[in-house]
């Protein structure tokens, strides 16, 4: 089975956000595989171990992304394609067009991606890729099984669980709960250094840089207004409960 994983490198979820000249500052930030994409990598490797096949990681981003690629290869992915090209660093339109162009001429039975990235949080790219490739998709999957030429997936729909089937090839997006991603082993890390990473430029994909240019542009990035220190209520339980209800009614006006 040929499995493709769409992966993004993101800020560590604990990273503090600092603005510099109106942009989010990257210096000193720890980068990780987007946690939802990490579930996608793990699921792909698990399926490969069960069914045989090849896991290819596809990613778009600057040189620093190679660290995330090496981690995925060390976990057990077989090869990677890295689009390291300014023309590919646009918005969701740009990135989905690039990913779809990379994937379309390759053999694939299954595409797995995270359901959203923890930086932009827009949750668009995977679904767009499915549309551009003309394959069905199943979003926010918490359980995945391959049954002959068909996938059977459990998906999280605002708390309800839907059991959805689709024929291969299909794209699924990973939700938390799908699996517990493994840590790369020492042998895995050693092997990863020998696995191939193909570098691809937008021009090689037959894409017109203008046609895939970003549609959305950033007007401004702002940090949330600093919250004043909250008020810690003192006294015995009854008095504090009374004071809180009074404050919520009279000062905050939410009761």
């Amino acid at each position: 089975m040929n499995i493709i994983v769409c992966m993004k490198q993101t800020f560590d979820t604990e990273a503090r956000i600092v603005l510099e000249n109106g942009a989010v500052k990257e210096d000193g930030v720890q980068f990780i595989i987007n946690p939802y994409d990490e579930y996608a990598v793990e699921e792909a490797i698990k399926l490969k171990e069960a069914e045989g096949g090849v896991v290819t990681v596809v990613t778009v981003g600057p040189a620093r992304v190679e660290e995330a690629i090496r981690t995925a290869l060390a976990m057990g992915a077989d090869e990677a394609i890295h689009v390291e090209d300014e023309a590919a660093f646009g918005d969701e339109v740009t990135v989905s067009e690039v990913l779809a162009a990379v994937i379309k001429d390759r053999p694939y039975d299954l595409i797995i991606a995270g359901n959203q990235a923890v930086d932009d949080g827009s949750g668009q790219v995977a679904v767009r890729v499915a549309e551009l490739l003309g394959v069905p998709h199943i979003s926010t999957v918490t359980k995945l099984e391959i049954n002959g030429g068909e996938v059977v997936a459990e998906r999280d729909a605002e708390g309800d669980t839907e059991i959805v089937t689709a024929p291969l090839p299909v794209l699924v997006t990973a939700q938390q709960g799908l699996n517990e991603p493994r840590y790369p082993s020492l042998i895995g890390i050693r092997k990863a250094s020998k696995k191939p990473i193909a570098k691809v430029a937008v021009a090689e994909l037959g894409l017109d840089a203008l046609a895939i240019a970003r549609r959305s542009s950033v007007v401004e990035i702002v940090l949330p207004a600093a919250k004043g220190a909250g008020r810690v209520l003192e006294g015995d339980t009854g008095a504090r409960a009374q004071a809180l209800v009074r404050e919520l009614r009279q000062t905050s006006k939410v009761l």
Binding site: V118, D120, S217, V218
Partner: peptide, 19 residues
């Protein structure tokens, strides 16, 4: 102009969309 949270609400971005 749309305002939306990024970095899990640790910042907000204002965007406009062409097309």
């Amino acid at each position: 102009i749309f305002t939306r949270p990024i970095y899990a609400g640790k910042a907000f971005v204002k965007v406009k969309i062409a097309g």
